[in-house]
Design a binder for these strands. Sequence first.
DNA 1: ACCCCAGACTTGAACGAGTCAAGTTAGAAG
DNA 2: CTTCTAACTTGACTCGTTCAAGTCTGGGGT
Lengths: 149, 149
Amino acid sequence: MDDSDFEGLLRSADLRVTRPRLAVLRAVRRHPHADTGSLLAAVRTEEPAVSHQAVYDVLGVLSEHGIVRRIQPAGSVARYELRVGDNHHHVVCRSCGTVADVDCAVGHRPCLDASDSRGFVIDEAEVTYWGLCPSCAPTATSTSAASTH
Amino acid sequence: MDDSDFEGLLRSADLRVTRPRLAVLRAVRRHPHADTGSLLAAVRTEEPAVSHQAVYDVLGVLSEHGIVRRIQPAGSVARYELRVGDNHHHVVCRSCGTVADVDCAVGHRPCLDASDSRGFVIDEAEVTYWGLCPSCAPTATSTSAASTH
DNA sequence: ACCCCAGACTTGAACGAGTCAAGTTAGAAG
DNA sequence: CTTCTAACTTGACTCGTTCAAGTCTGGGGT
């Protein structure tokens, strides 16, 4: 994912290639799962004149076009990442809020043919794991028994 | 789930039984998946003097003690429900934001033994389905093919 | 039955992520 | 080079949620 890749992504989505957009894409690449505020700060290290509104706008259109993915665990502000369309989920630390990627267990499509989908037309199943990250977890306690809810 | 059940739940969590708390519990029972504002309005139909702060406090402690469950789909405000510990997930309508319960496919524990949990100690896996509710979905289109992400 | 006090509530101000609106700038097609 | 509109800047604003300080009350102890 270098700058010419970003340019291609923008062009094939019929979006103009602008300095703010490239700067936002580079910021998201450098800071996966960062929130808008951090991304704004990161963008301004290379493009000091970019407004916060521009960052919101850019992240908005990039999400709409599937170039970045917006995630928002309960209790957190919106976060963004570049990995799209590659079937992965997220682990969120209950203590510090850190987010990490988790590859989907091979071949599994969790609960997807939900017996009763209530008449909804479902297009995505999002899985979020909750727990404690290595830094926050009490040391030594090992196994990660998890329950579905 | 009648009022004496609520009283029991509170007492066994070492929480005082107060009129505001009972009113909030009744409101959550009457309005599953409602946000704080709606619950406040519902509470005030029977207890007009209850402050908004009280509702926030009550929902907070009830969540901490596992008496109610707080959910917050991306882009939504916090919502609350009484069903706890019974293994169910949620479908959220992308168009109107409506939330419905979906029972977990029997015996499935989605992606839980995640091949690589990044050193996190996981205690819960939350599944959110995204799509269109019956009212918002274009009529007739039927199948609900879903992709994991 | 009464007292007492920490836990629960009221009041009112404040915070901050995100949005709205109006005017200006700059990609990129012709 | 010109033109047009998508994209950006600026600045005000909304609203869900939290903070802080003071008052009240459920329920255990006497």
